[in-house]
Amino acid sequence: MDRRTMLAGTAATLAATATGARAQTTGDTEMTDQPRLVMWGAALMVHPLQARLDAVAESGFTHMTVFPADVARWREGGLTDADITRAIRASGVGIATIDPYTGWVPGWSLEGLDEFTRGFIGYSEDEVFRMADVLETGQINMVESAGAAYEETAYADAMAAFAERAKARGLRPTFEFMPTSKIAGLREGWSLIQASGADVGLTFDTWHFWRSDPDHDLLATVPMDRILEVQVADGGAEIVEDLQTDLLYHRRVPGEGDFDLTRTLDVLRGMGPIRSVGPETFSQEMNETATADEAVGRNAAGLAGLMPEIADKLG
């Protein structure tokens, strides 16, 4: 199967009970000696809801994440919002965050985007807030995509305004820099969060860090209580085709690539306890060959190999 066929197949696959219920299913992200263990949705994107929940529930991961496009697809497939909530509650798996949300950015528009991208990010604030209620998550992950030309003050004001609206809905936002976006690296991403003055946490993705400017000295200056999520993904020494293709189809399971993830994780550990950690492996190979159980198990083994302190949890 070629990459474009895979893209089309993936696109076809994706397409205020708040406070009390969220407390039960999301867990807290206070700094403790044991991080929250999150199976990020990238490696499970071709699998149905119940298969994901079953695989995660049996793995040692306590949480998983959901794309807005997942919720849209499950609804199209006949699940009601009540069905989705009920399945999640029954599984015992918490939903760590709904990810990504892009509509906060100034000048956000879907005009000129391909069908896959429109289906992946094309959700309004109200739609994503309602999805968060259905998932009973207390967090929403912001990224930049399809926005106006980057100007820090305008973006900072938009981030702060969105953070206030999210807070009113019982949601805490995080922000994730990406080398494929206008906020490409840690320096720009952390600067934007600071400029906003808002209670926005950082989602730190090792793939994004290594594919932008992997400045470990800079990383060590970020307050650890602002790094709410750590996504661990590996990659090859060379970019495959281009950054976007590499990001979506050629990430590697933690420990199976060429990034010095041990160094990065050691720096993070030196900054304080890691609150929440898990693999995020967008991979054409995994989408084509892995069952949900295999995808979760392989990612669990990779993460445990890099983080022996959690190996006994991911059996």
Rank of each mutant, 00 (worst) to 15 (best):
W210N: 15
E111S: 14
A132G: 07
W190C: 07
D133P: 04
T102E: 10
A195Q: 08
A154P: 00
F116A: 11
D205K: 03
T174C: 08
F162S: 05
L135M: 01
D114M: 05
A161M: 06
R118T: 10
I227G: 01
Y155V: 11
E188L: 05
E144T: 09
M142I: 09
P179K: 02
M159R: 05
D199Q: 14
M142A: 06
L171P: 00
A156T: 02
T117I: 14
M131I: 04
D133C: 05
T153I: 12
V105A: 15
E136Y: 00
F116E: 13
P106Y: 08
G107M: 06
P179L: 05
V143W: 12
G138M: 05
W207T: 10
R187P: 02
Y155M: 04
K182Q: 14
M224G: 15
R172S: 06
A184V: 00
I121P: 03
Q139T: 09
G189C: 12
F162L: 15
M159W: 07
E136L: 08
A132Q: 06
P106S: 06
D205S: 00
A154L: 12
R172M: 14
I95G: 11
G138C: 07
K182D: 12
A198S: 08
F175I: 05
A149P: 12
P179C: 04
I140W: 03
E164Q: 14
G201F: 09
D213V: 15
V105G: 07
F204K: 08
L171G: 00
L219E: 00
G112C: 10
I140C: 11
A132L: 04
A148T: 11
D225W: 07
T117S: 15
L192E: 07
E136D: 11
H208F: 01
Y155W: 10
T102P: 02
L113K: 13
L218W: 00
Q139V: 08
F120C: 03
A220Q: 08
D99E: 15
S124Q: 06
G119D: 09
S124G: 15
S212I: 02
L186W: 06
D157W: 01
F116T: 12
G112W: 05
R118P: 02
A184N: 02
M142W: 02
D99R: 03
D114W: 03
R226W: 13
T180Q: 12
T97K: 04
V222I: 15
V105R: 09
T180C: 11
L113N: 04
D114F: 04
L113P: 03
D217K: 14
D126S: 14
A198F: 07
V222T: 06
S196A: 10
A156Q: 07
G138L: 10
A146F: 00
G170D: 05
A195T: 13
P223W: 05
L218H: 13
G119Y: 13
T137C: 12
E136W: 00
A195D: 07
D133M: 01
D199S: 11
I227F: 04
R118G: 06
Y155S: 05
N141A: 13
I95S: 01
G103T: 01
P223K: 10
V105L: 03
D215A: 09
R226V: 13
G107H: 08
W207N: 10
I140P: 01
S196L: 09
K167E: 15
G138H: 08
